[in-house]
Design a protein around this nucleic acid. Structure first.
Length: 419
DNA sequence: CGTCCACGTCTAC
DNA sequence: TAGACCTGGACGG
């Protein structure tokens, strides 16, 4: 879960759980972590957190003691220390008793209580990182959620930067300008405005003002814009009642923050609210394409002129193993379907089958297939299918669309826990 | 049991 | 621009 909203919810979690808790001793790191040791130890200290885009900063504050000299002499900290943490693909915080330490708790802070409790930075994949005595990473821009004005100003005033030569969906992942936006947010944001993901970024952004003229408007209410969807006419995506693209880079993540703990709290691994909130990412019926960096872009409708187009585009393709495309979709509780219209261009191969789902060949991705394989081929799109279910993902191919798309349901739903 | 996929950076050729 | 870095869940055979 780690995109801006989850990092912020993580900071709220730390502040809530650790309020009034006194921590003690050294900060401990797991044996396997390659991140730096945190040279901090103190008889009594407190922990608070703050977030900015995709980073969380923990502040360890020594409590006053009657005898500072003794403390310092003993190697105890007397000054606060900041630790800046990035979550990678799987990081999160948990506060548990010592005997319930989660697996992969790579950085730990011990409380002074008797049944000791521990604040842990948990990170299964270990892509996360931290820096003792750290500061917000210098090349990351202002937080899209909490430094909106400066975020907006920075983008608008740097449109000549070559970084904006790329498709808008790829630029949205550039943390120098969009600190906090990640793969699900870029899909949700572009979807709300019906902006084709592979349209040149500058084209979409130029003309936007540094001042958000939609400032005082009512809160974005979310209507499922559906009425408008299908018409082939592409409506003007520049700004709607909900505001322009930059404003949505601020409001959409805040919606996730407002979903509350559910979105984040690892304790209750209940992502049902979050999944119900998603309108595009991983949603059944939406299309997906690997972007030039191999990241899956979910969207609806026209991919836009800079779409990787099979051939060489990169990872997605490279990953491609042999022939075949693969598509996958998942379903989510809330049914949302909507196939696409306008899929002009590429026609995917189609399948005629009706009932049994058939799959196709597959493609490989970098992560998975890693290293050696590469091949050629394209990626493309996805289509709908399946129904119900709740969590699960599915892959399958589908025809590109129109005619008939109704259903073919396959036989499977997904279930995850075993019986 | 093997393959594919994952909410993200990093850095080396 | 392509790997590297990792673990684990869902699927498929």
């Amino acid at each position: 879960m780690p995109e801006g909203p989850e990092l912020h919810l993580a900071s709220l979690y730390v502040n809530k759980m650790c309020a009034g808790v006194v921590f003690t001793g050294p900060v401990r790191k797991s044996e396997v972590s390659k991140n730096p040791d945190v040279p901090f130890t103190c008889e009594a200290y407190r922990i608070t957190a703050a977030s900015r885009g995709k980073e969380v900063k923990l502040t360890l504050t020594p409590m006053k003691s009657d005898d500072p000299k003794e403390r310092v002499k003993a190697g105890q900290a007397d000054q606060p220390m900041d630790i800046v943490i990035r979550f990678g693909m799987s990081g999160y915080f948990r506060f548990t008793t010592e005997d319930e330490l989660p697996k992969h708790a790579h950085l730990r802070f011990y409380s002074k209580e008797t049944p000791c409790r521990v604040l842990s930075f948990v990170d299964a994949r270990r892509f996360g990182s931290w820096q003792p005595n750290g500061t917000w990473q210098s090349d990351r821009g202002p937080c899209v959620m909490f430094e909106y004005e400066s975020f907006r100003e920075k983008v608008v005033s740097h449109l000549s930067d070559r970084a904006f030569d790329k498709p808008i969906c790829e630029v949205l992942l550039n943390q120098k300008y969009f600190n906090g936006i990640g793969n699900y947010l870029r899909a949700e944001i572009l979807f709300r405005l019906n902006i084709p993901p592979f349209v040149p970024a500058r084209t979409v952004l130029e003309g936007l003002e540094s001042e958000d003229l939609s400032e005082n408007k009512k809160p974005v209410k979310n209507e499922t814009t559906d009425t408008k969807t299908s018409d082939g006419a592409k409506q003007k995506w520049v700004k709607g009642e909900t505001g322009d693209l930059l404003r949505l880079c601020h409001t959409v993540p805040l919606e996730v923050v407002n979903l509350g703990g559910k979105g984040y709290d690892p304790q209750k691994t209940d992502y049902s609210d979050f999944k119900a909130w998603l309108q595009c990412y991983y949603v059944d019926g939406m299309k997906s394409i690997g972007d030039h960096n191999g990241r899956t872009m979910w969207f609806k409708g026209d991919p836009g002129p800079m779409a990787p187009k099979d051939s060489k585009s990169t990872k997605a393709k490279k990953r491609a193993k042999k022939d075949g495309h693969d598509y996958y979709t998942d379903k989510k509780k809330v049914a949302r379907k909507r196939s696409e219209s306008t899929s002009k261009k590429k026609v995917v191969k189609q399948e005629t089958v009706t009932k049994t789902p058939k799959k196709e060949k597959k493609a490989r991705t970098k992560e998975a297939g890693t290293k050696r394989r590469k091949a050629e081929n394209s990626r493309e799109v996805t289509a709908p299918q399946h129904e119900k279910g709740s969590t699960a993902r599915r892959r399958k191919s589908s025809s590109a669309e129109p005619a008939a798309g109704p259903q073919r349901r396959s036989g499977r739903v997904t279930r995850q826990n075993s019986k």
